[in-house]
Design a protein around this nucleic acid. Structure first.
Length: 405
DNA sequence: AATCCACAGGAAGTGCTGGGCG
DNA sequence: CGCCCAGCACTTCCTGTGGATT
């Protein structure tokens, strides 16, 4: 019995009903063509081309909302450029969201020039020294891509950026160009003007994709990824429409298509429908929240519980920082854990706001002070599921949640 | 026009973990 | 081994502030 079932499952994966090549829809796949980004490709290539004649290209700054093709275009251009340049150009890519400290960024650059360093233990200055040494030894032009560089600056300041942009004076045989990518359009406003001038020698803006462009991109990818005729008519337009509403986010469009097809595959219906897309949308949103919530530290979770309980008890009232702090303190007392200060709570609320789990608006209530007004930005269901997915935490607060729900 | 609330949010420091280096 | 380093989650102390109320 089990044998048969297993055989069935394995076979269904071995020969997909839907896909020819699923990988084409994965987020880090860089396609051979990037439709509707010709202008940006040419611009970036023109800026970087001096590397081919051995001179240092200017530093570049690239803006654009998420999923507008910044990373893909950059990787695409650099790939062609390094190929054309033979060994003279070295490209390194660092994602500053995952490597969001000065140390980690330098460590990655250092290992890109053949000088791997331990992931902790050294001083940042030492890692910088090793990186410079390694780069100098290479005797090449290095292009360092710092993707999502705003995350680095927000959490660790701009000192690395500062050093990197003026590193060339210490180099004789090598050169370094920095390509900064951000989806925070106000980024340039809050960094040091000295870095601004060094980093923003050239600037590139990526506009969001339109609905039509998204559709076109999806069709091209779908052609390669799916067997003919497995997509119901409305599937691609729907994915495109949903993503177009989210600032023309192409990655979201692709994610939706992938997830929808995965659901269809799992159900073994051999056809992807609009309903699959809608379910994919819900699942994607939920997963994002659940994953974010479940890895949070204890006190952040407790604060989310406070927000949740306050919202449940009186959904019309505006919730302020102070109210959350009081409710949070009660919870701490009930479950017998130490409290953090209000200063910290205020900070946690800002962090949650940045993650999009809550909305925190700073308002002035005149005589009644200045505070944040807080609202839950995600569905209660997803939040509770996220909190639940850590069993030891959930057993701690379970009684509290049950009291109200 | 001045006041004053209830916080916002910057700066600096602490204690801890997990890891160098000589 | 002893000492140094970075990162994290926090604390302590602090100055700043929009606008309803006096």
């Amino acid at each position: 019995m089990v044998e048969d079932r297993l055989e069935e499952i394995f076979n269904s994966f071995k020969s997909s009903q839907i896909y020819i090549n699923r990988e084409i829809l994965l987020p880090d796949y860089v396609p051979d063509e990037l439709p509707h980004r010709d202008k940006q490709i040419i611009e970036l290539a023109t800026i970087l081309a001096p590397a081919l004649s051995g001179s240092k290209p200017p530093n570049v700054f690239i803006y654009g909302l998420t999923g507008t093709g910044k990373t893909a275009v950059t990787k695409y251009v650099l790939r062609r450029l390094s190929k054309k340049a033979g060994g003279r150009v070295l490209a390194a890519y660092v994602n500053c969201r995952s490597s969001n400290t000065n140390y980690r960024v330098l460590a990655e650059l250092s290992s890109a020039v053949g000088r791997p360093v331990p992931f902790t233990g050294l001083s940042t200055a030492e890692v910088l020294r090793r990186f410079v040494q390694g780069l100098e030894k290479q005797g090449r032009i290095m292009m360092a891509v710092l993707d999502e560089v705003d995350w680095l600056v927000k959490s660790s300041g701009d000192s690395v950026l500062y050093h990197l942009t003026r590193l060339n004076s210490e180099l004789t045989r090598s050169r370094l160009s920095v390509i900064g990518i951000t989806n925070d359009l106000r980024f340039m406003e809050y960094i040091d003007p000295r870095i601004k001038s060094g980093l923003g020698e050239e600037e590139l803006v990526f506009p969001p994709y339109t609905n039509k462009e998204l559709e076109d991109i999806l069709r091209k990818r779908a052609e390669l990824a799916f067997k003919p005729g497995v997509l119901e008519e409305g599937v691609i337009p729907l994915c495109a429409a949903i993503a177009a509403k989210q600032n023309g986010d192409c990655r979201l469009a692709l994610d939706l298509l992938l997830k929808a097809a995965d659901i269809a595959e799992r159900e073994r219906v051999g056809k992807v429908t609009e309903d699959h897309v809608r379910r994919a949308q819900r699942e994607l949103e939920k997963n994002l929240i659940v994953d974010a919530v479940k890895t949070m530290p204890l006190h952040v979770k407790l604060i989310l519980v406070s927000v949740y309980l306050l919202e449940k008890s009186d959904s019309l009232k505006n919730i302020t920082t102070g109210e959350i702090y009081n409710s949070y303190r009660e919870i701490c007392k009930k479950i017998g854990v130490g409290e953090v200060t209000q200063r910290r709570v205020s900070e946690i609320l800002s962090e949650l706001d940045m993650l999009g789990i809550i909305n925190a608006r700073v308002v002035s209530l005149g005589r009644y002070g200045r505070t944040k007004i807080i609202k839950l930005a995600v569905s209660e269901k997803s939040l509770v599921e996220g909190l639940k997915s850590d069993p030891s935490f959930y057993s701690l607060i379970d009684p509290l949640l049950n009291m109200l729900s």
